[in-house]
Nucleic acid binder design. Structure first.
Lengths: 193, 193
DNA sequence: TGAATACGTTCACTTAAGTTAAGAAATGCT
DNA sequence: AGCATTTCTTAACTTAAGTGAACGTATTCA
């Protein structure tokens, strides 16, 4: 399991055994059952997440219903907004599947940055890379219709469409579940005709 | 002008005079006339931008027309995707107004990170903070209607609505200029009634 | 300064998403 | 296994965005 992490990191910086051991010594690997809530609205937390296996989901509760805005799957990382700005969370995070995560928090990061500056480089590069990807994602979202967004998702993250409930996918696409159903029907019709 | 930069940085890390001089020595302050194109589709570039004064705009040309996806104004920074992934740019960046920018590039950053590790900390914190803001932004976009997005923009960046042409604002809101016109009329009606 | 271009608004019409409701299918739980 | 709940789909109707066109008003620039 740890190898998954170190293989991932090796794409960005090379770690000595010392550095690897330092990570392991923090004992950050955690397993969660499907449905587990990791973060609640109103809650303060210091935990960042890196998904080793499984899928977690960010959602808001607005006017009584859930609005899903993000899914994180294997080798994706997220530091919740509430960790950055030290305020109560605006949203929930829960496990879509049985999930294995690596937890991080600012104290642990500070200690690591101090001992091994290389880790700060890693985090900077990761943040910059994720930010750039996020921007492209947002751009695509803005410049396309719900139908295009769905087709795009089928291309880019076909696994998501399988492993995630439709109604959660719908709000991820910025539409209602009924519209997603209809839209899928429309696409099937086109493929036939 | 430089003070604007150093005041901004001082919110994150404190710089010595040596460090300030190092920045200045890179001679990174640049002025551009309204309408100047900073980056073109297909072009490779290494420049990141920090807006000291003015406004720059990111847009795609899709099927012959412009889709504006971002505006950066005073004290906002952007590193184009093409700089991160070293590929030709998918989009254009141009100046909405006469603009003063600070240019950065990976070589210069590497040198600074080397001499003053504090700069890497600054960049990491900035990237993390911008990423968190961007995520909230994206979440708001996904969970609201074009009308709500416009009202939200009026609240959060009222200046933008003034300084930017309507048709550019429209695609920024994910809709057509005609729809923005109509939508604004609708809001005015409501306010009256 | 005058012609050309770009910009914003309005309108009529089309298309697609939101809403409400109902029912079928899948899932979870005891 | 059987009941309850959640999830997905369908349908009819409403609302809003997309489209194409027209028109008046800046802006640009030769």
């Amino acid at each position: 399991m740890q190898d998954l992490l170190f293989d991932f990191i090796s794409k960005y910086v090379s770690l000595t055994d010392d550095e690897k051991n330092a990570i392991v010594s923090f004992d950050v690997f955690r397993s969660f059952k499907k449905g587990t809530t990791l973060l609640k609205e109103g809650q303060k937390s210091n935990d960042g997440y890196f998904v080793l296996k499984g899928c977690i989901r960010v959602y808001y509760v607005i006017g009584g219903d859930e609005k899903t805005t993000a899914f994180y799957t294997e080798m994706e990382a997220v530091t919740p907004h509430c960790v950055i700005n030290k305020a109560p969370s605006d949203y929930y995070i829960s496990c879509v599947e049985d999930t294995i995560l690596i937890l991080s928090n600012p104290d642990m990061e500070a200690e690591m940055f101090n001992k091994f500056p290389k880790f700060e480089t890693l985090c900077r590069i990761l943040a910059e890379e994720i930010l750039a990807k996020q921007q492209i994602n947002f751009d695509e979202f803005k410049t396309s219709s719900p139908e295009q967004r769905y087709l795009n998702l089928l291309q880019k993250r076909p696994d998501l469409v399988q492993r995630v409930p439709q109604h959660q996918l719908a709000s991820y696409l910025g539409i209602k579940p009924q519209s997603l159903s209809r839209l899928r029907g429309r696409i099937l019709e086109k493929d036939k005709g």
